[in-house]
Design a protein around this nucleic acid. Structure first.
Lengths: 222, 222, 222, 222
DNA sequence: AATGAATGAGTGTTCATTCAT
DNA sequence: TATGAATGAACACTCATTCAT
C-alpha cells in the first residue's frame, strides 16, 4: 500500500503542477490583452491564439469567460500586492516607513500602469463575489501603509489624523500616476511626481516640531 | 432673395433646434443605461427602446455606437463641469475658494457617483480623439480650483506648492468618494469624509502664520 | 381622428400579415428538415439557408430554437388535425362514420408519414408546457372518432366498449402505417392494410345482429 | 507449439471476457442516461463519468458515438425481447397463449416505458444498417405471438385473420401504454388497460362458437 | 424625418474525437 | 489497457449596422 501511494502521489503532484502551469499560461496570455483593451473587447479565441492553445482547453481551466476575467483581475491585484510588499524596505522610523511605502507603491504602479487601470475597469464588471475579493485584496495591500501611519501617530510624529483616510489617499494618489498619466506625464517626470506628492502629502501630517528631521522628504514645504 | 432667406433661416433654426432636442433625447436615454451597465452591455436597441425611438433614427444623429458612447462620455463630463462651476460660490478669500470648490466637487460627485465611474470606465475605450476631448474637459473642470490655488499662493496664504499637482490631487480625492465608495461609505458618513479630507489636504498647504484664520476648516489638525 | 385611424389600422394589418408570412416561410423551411432528420440534427443556419433568410431574422420570429421546434411540432399536429377533419365525410350511420374516419386518418397519415414520426420524436424533447399542447391537439384530433364510437354504442350498434380506449387504438393503429412502415409496406399495399385493419378492428365491436349490414367493411371476417 | 497454444487460448478467452464486461459496463451506464434524455443530449463524457471510466476507453470498445447509440438501442431491444420470451408461460391453448403473450408484453413494457420510447426515438437516427438490426429484433420479438396466432387460426379457434397484421397490432397497442402513457394513465389503471385491451382485441378474432371458453378473457364483450 | 425588418459576422460555449503518456 | 489533456469545428444566439418603405 505504501509503495502504491508512493507511486501515485508524485503522479498526482506532477499533474497538478502541469495544470497550474497551464492556468498560468492562459492567464499570462489574457492579462496583457485585457490590460490593453478591457475584457469585453477580448474574445476567448484571441486569448487562445495568444496562449497558443485551443479555445476548448481554456474551458478546461476556467468554467466561463467571467471566471477567467475574475482570475485575471485577482491575479493582477495579487501581483500588485506582492510587488508592493516586496518593495517595502525595513525602516525603523514610521514616517520614513510611510514615505518608503508610498515610493514603493508609486514605483510599482509606474511599471504596471495598465494593470492598475485594468483593476479599476474590471472591478465594476465583476459580480458581487468578485468585488468582495477585490476589496479584500486592496485592503490587504494598504495594510503596511496603514500600520505605519498608526505607529507614527502613536509615537507623536504625526497629527492625530485618520489612518484609514490618509492611507487610502496615499494609495489613490499613487494610482493617479496611472489613472491621470496623460495629465502628469507631460508636466513632470516620475521623479518629480514622486518627490512633489511625498512632500505635499507628508507635510500635511508631520507635527511642526518634528519637521526638521524630514527636510529631505519635505523639500521646499518644510 | 431677401424674403427667401428670411423664410429659410428660421426654418433652418427650427430644424436645428429639433435636431438638438432629438440628440438630447437619445443621450438622455443612453446615459443612465451606460452608467448602470457600461457601454458594451448596452445595445443600440435598448437605447432606442428607452428613448422611445427606432434604432435607425439613432444612426441619423450618431454615426456609430462608438460615437454615441463618446457623446455620452463627453456629455457626462460636461455636465459634471457645469454642475461644479454652478456649485461654486463667490468667495473673496482664495483659501475659502479652494475649500468651497472642493466641497462643491465632492457634493456633486456624491450625487453622480455612477457618472464619475462611467468616465473612468469609458475613457479607455475611447479613441485617441475622444481621449483628447476628455482630457480637455477635465482640465477645464479643475480650472477654478487651480486658479484659486494659484491666487492663494500668490497672496502668501499657502506654501509655494505646485498648483497643477495640488488641484489634481484634490479632484482625485474627491473622485475617490465614488471610486472607493465601498471603502469609505461603511467607515464614515459623507460629511465626515468631506470634513476629514478638507482638513487633511488643506492643513498641508496653509502657512503656519495664517492657520488661525481657518480653524473652522482644519478641525483637529490646526 | 377617424381618418388617422383609417390610415393606421391597415398599415398595422399589413405588417401583421407580412409577419405571419415570414413565420410561415421559416416554418415551411424547418418542417421538412426536421421531419427528415429530427430537430437536434438541424441547425438554425440550415433552416435559415433553406428559408432563404438570415439566422438573425429567425430570432425575430422565434425566441429560441426550442420555441421554433415547438411551433414546428404544433404546426404539424394542427395540420394533421385539420386534414383529418377535412377528410371526414358526412355520414349518417355511426359505424360507417367510424370506418370513414379511420380511413381518413390512414389516408392522411400515408401522405404525411414523416410528419407523424416527427410528432412522436419531438413530443419527448418538448418541455412540460409544449407537451400539454401536443396532448390537447391529439385529443382534439381523436374527438370525431370518439364521438362516432359513442353514438354507435348508444344506438346499440356496437358492444359496450370503452370509447376512449377504442378510438385511441384506432388512432394508434393508423399511426402504425407510419411508425411500422418498414414492416407493413413490404408485406401489403396500403389498400390491403386499410381494408385489413378496418375489418379486424370493427369486427370486434359490431354486435352480431348488425353484422350483415356491414359486410362491405368486414370482408372475410363477417 | 501446442504448449504455446494451450497457453494462449485461455489467455484470449480471458481477454474476451474482460472485454465483454467492459462493453456491458459502458452500455449499462449509457442506457439509463439515454433513456432519460435521448442520445443527442448525452455526452460521451457523461457516459464515461457514469461508467467510471475515461472517455478514451469508450472509443476502444465503440468506434464512435453513433455506434454506441446503435449498441444501446440494440441492447435495449434485445433485452426487451429476452424479457418478453422469459415472461411467456407455457400454455397449451393457442388463444390463451396469445392472451398470455400480450399480457407479458404489456407487463414488460410497463416496467420499461423509457426503453420503449428510446427505441422509437433512436430508430430514426440510426443508419440504414442499424435500422435493419432493429427491424430484425422486433420481428423476432413478435415471433412467439405470431406463431400462437397462426396456431389458433389453424385449429379453427380464430377467424382467418392475417397473423402478421394482428400480431403487430397487438405489439403496437402494447407499446401504446408507453407511447400514449399521458393519455391512458390518468384514465385507467394498468390492470384496466390490460384487461380492456385484451377483451377488445381478442373478441375481434375468436370465432363465436368458441367464445364461451374464454369468458374470463372477454369480460363484458363476450 | 422616421421606422424596424433584415443582415451576417462575431460571441461564448460544447463536445465528439484523437493521441501522447 | 487505460487515461484525460487537447483539439477545433460546430452550435445557438446577439447586435451594430443598413436600407427599403
Amino acid at each position: 500500500m505504501l509503495r502504491h501511494d508512493a507511486a501515485i502521489v508524485p503522479q498526482e503532484a506532477a499533474r497538478a503542477a502541469r495544470s497550474d502551469a497551464r492556468r498560468r499560461q492562459i492567464l499570462g496570455a489574457a492579462v496583457p490583452l485585457m490590460e490593453r483593451s478591457g475584457s469585453p473587447a477580448v474574445s476567448m479565441q484571441a486569448i487562445a491564439d495568444e496562449a497558443g492553445v485551443s479555445v476548448g482547453l481554456i474551458y478546461r481551466y476556467f468554467a466561463s469567460k467571467q471566471e477567467l476575467v475574475q482570475a485575471v483581475t485577482e491575479g493582477v491585484l495579487d501581483e500588485m500586492r506582492r510587488l508592493l510588499a516586496e518593495a517595502l524596505e525595513p525602516e525603523q522610523d514610521p514616517v520614513r516607513q510611510i514615505a518608503g511605502a508610498f515610493a514603493a507603491y508609486c514605483t510599482v504602479i509606474r511599471e504596471h500602469r495598465q494593470a492598475v487601470m485594468l483593476t479599476y475597469r474590471e472591478a465594476n464588471t465583476l459580480g458581487e463575489a468578485g468585488r468582495g475579493v477585490v476589496k479584500d485584496l486592496e485592503i490587504r495591500t494598504v495594510e503596511p501603509l496603514r500600520s505605519a501611519v498608526d505607529a507614527a501617530v502613536e509615537q507623536g510624529l504625526l497629527r492625530p489624523i485618520d489612518a484609514g483616510i490618509f492611507s487610502y489617499d496615499l494609495l489613490t494618489v499613487a494610482h493617479s500616476w496611472a489613472l491621470k498619466h496623460w495629465y502628469f506625464a507631460p508636466r513632470m517626470t516620475f521623479e518629480e511626481f514622486l518627490r512633489g506628492q511625498t512632500a505635499l502629502l507628508l507635510s500635511t501630517a508631520i507635527l511642526p516640531e518634528h519637521r526638521d528631521r524630514y527636510t529631505d522628504l519635505l523639500g521646499d514645504l518644510v
